[in-house]
Amino acid sequence: MSVPSRDLGRRAFLARMGVLGAAAAVPALVAPSATATPSALSPLVGLLRPVLAELSRDTLRGLVVMVCPGPDAYSRAQGTPRAEAGALEARGDDFMIAALDGFVPFPDQLATPLAAALATAVDDIGLPLPTGLLAPLFPPVWTLDRVLLELLENDEALPLSLVVALLLNVVATQVNPLALTGPFLAPFARLSLEQKCRAFELLEGPDAELVALLDAGLPEPLRSSISGLLTFLAGALLEFSAFGSYNEWGVYDASARTVTERPVGWQLSGYQPDGVVDGWADFIGYYQDRTEVQA
């Protein structure tokens, strides 16, 4: 089967974002139906949404084990398996999804063009992809491409976790094109810890080609904002992953205002072994017995 070059480019890019691989399990999404009309796309959007949610989760699992590796497959894949509990036992992935999708006050006016920029860009950034890797794996992707655009352009509240996931996966394949295939849904989750760090280096730098790609999708006067935004985002993703993977969120019962079991971060750190206190017997006295000083 011959593949038009634009189609190949789009397919490569969908693959790089992880979307193609994630959608492969839903045949209707990857069927060759170049003539699909907008009305025929609507039900497919409904099919794609959960696929993308899974892709986001898989990507964020790859992220949170960076700051708190544990006895899970994602930590093993990055080359740092640990015996004791880690970010996934602490529900760090759920923490990030809840935070990104529910509470980050990130304007849709910025998130949507960012996602659209990622989704519409052709594969002209960074490393050329080995097309030979793609051709035998996936059928033509016109349908998926159009469904994705439909979703990005029309969803009222685009999950920010998806924007983050698409971004991490594109950068992941820039670092290591071989991450296109392997275990997990997300290319980012397939990277070694060293490669993940390299991906963050590109985000934080930020990498000029990446900036150019994203800037192109943004309306004026936001274009110059993207480079600062990437450095902010790169830092914030790691910082927030660390906060969420070591705090009590995963076992907190908001209605009872208490934890249901000892949080992973407390186990790991030895924090307040008997739980919340009203005080500690740690008052030693005053330095050199001085209880007050003069002006």
Binding site: V67, C68, E194, C197, R198, F200, E201, E204, G205, G235, L238, E239, F240, S241, A242, F243, G244, S245, Y246, N247, E248, P263, G265, W266, L268, S269, Y271
Partner: peptide, 22 residues
């Protein structure tokens, strides 16, 4: 506290120790 401790340890303008210095 533990979560804030790790937040503070990751909040950097110098990249990731042993990997890149930004």
């Amino acid at each position: 506290t533990p979560g804030l401790q790790q937040f503070a340890a990751v909040f950097s303008d110098s990249g990731i120790r042993g990997h890149y210095a930004n």
